Amino acid sequence: MTARRVLRWTGLAVATVVFLYPFAWLLSASLKPRAQVFDNVLIPRDFAWGNYVEIWQAAPVGAWFLNSVVVSLAAAAAVTLTSSLVAFGFAYFRFPGRNALFGLVLATMMLPGAVTMIPVYLIWNSVGLAHTQVPLWAGNLFGSAFYIFLLRQFFLGLPREVFEAARVDGANHWTLFWRIAVPLCRPALIVSFVFELKASWSDLLKPLIYLRDRALFTLPRGLKALSDQFGQAGEQRWEIVLAGSVITTVPLLVVFFLAQRHFLAGITTEGPKSTP
């Protein structure tokens, strides 16, 4: 038993080092002078704290950061709310064709994003919103097949007797959802929120397609603009770009640690406890 425990902890320690090394390298490289960025030494010989000052002077990082916060929170909140509503409908209501319709929703996950990229752009362009931040989050108002599937499994795990008792007491369907289902499935909702927050925060493709105004850039789009700018100048300023990458990464780490307890509870939950 002791030897097995030693092997287990050794394996976990090795895995931890492997996963943490890229971020440690990123943080170290962002604090180095230009000539030492790629020396693969984790502890800089000379600390260049001015890299972080320079990136704030070279670009409106504060505005980009605020744009990322607004877009990511709007996208995460929209997809969590709408997906939970649809998932609750599939879990609670029993109607003809329910399973077939749910299967159709799941089938949309097999559709590559590149297939719908142009039609979706044309739709936003037709309503005059193609070059705004609205397309970055408003599409989530229609839910997401993945989150609908995830949340439906949680809702199916709730005892149906609880809802029937509430119906006897006069609760309507909205009360069943908001006052009973949502509090009991809070870990799953937090998982959906954190997943979408991370996806929207680090997304580069949509901002590249829709955003033209530099003042509307999110952090990933802004870093791409800085990378292009410094590259065209003749010498790549990797230390500046890496400092921006650290600024982009740290908020996600903070969010994960704040939501870690609920996040892990949502991931490690058991399967359904009741029949649909």
Rank of each mutant, 00 (worst) to 15 (best):
V86K: 08
N40K: 15
I190D: 08
Q232E: 13
V115H: 13
A259N: 06
V194R: 12
F256Q: 02
I247K: 15
H131S: 13
A225R: 05
Y92Q: 00
D213A: 13
D46W: 14
L129R: 10
N172D: 11
A233N: 09
Q236W: 14
N99S: 10
L101M: 03
A100Q: 09
L106T: 01
V191L: 05
T116G: 04
N140P: 05
L111W: 08
F65W: 10
L31C: 13
S72A: 02
S84K: 04
Q229G: 13
V127F: 06
E164M: 11
P22Y: 15
P44D: 07
I240S: 11
W201E: 10
L223R: 07
V255L: 06
P207Q: 12
E54K: 14
A91P: 00
F154V: 01
L216Y: 07
I43S: 14
L101N: 03
R94P: 04
L216E: 13
S200M: 10
N172C: 08
L223Q: 02
I267Y: 11
L176C: 11
V105W: 05
F193Y: 10
F65L: 10
A13R: 15
A181Y: 12
W174G: 00
Q236S: 13
V194Q: 05
T82I: 05
H173N: 02
V6S: 15
L27W: 15
I190W: 09
P135Q: 06
P135N: 10
S30N: 12
V182F: 03
L216W: 12
V246N: 05
L258C: 03
V191N: 01
N125T: 12
V254S: 04
T175R: 15
R8W: 12
A29I: 04
V241H: 07
F154P: 00
F93N: 05
A74R: 07
P60E: 04
S84G: 00
E196G: 12
L150W: 09
T218K: 02
S192Q: 05
A215F: 09
F23H: 15
E239D: 09
P251R: 15
A181Q: 08
R237F: 06
G50Y: 10
T116L: 07
A74W: 01
N125S: 11
S144H: 13
L20V: 06
L242W: 05
P119F: 08
A259S: 08
T275V: 14
Q153E: 03
F93W: 02
R34F: 07
L156K: 12
Q57N: 13
G244F: 05
L226F: 10
L184Q: 10
A259P: 00
F47L: 11
T269N: 05
N125W: 09
L42C: 06
W201P: 08
E196W: 14
L26E: 07
K224T: 00
R160V: 07
G103Y: 04
K32L: 06
F257C: 01
A188V: 01
A91F: 00
T108E: 00
F88N: 00
S72F: 01
L104K: 10
H131T: 11
F230S: 08
R214W: 14
V17L: 15
W124N: 01
Q36C: 11
Y210L: 11
Q260M: 02
P96W: 03
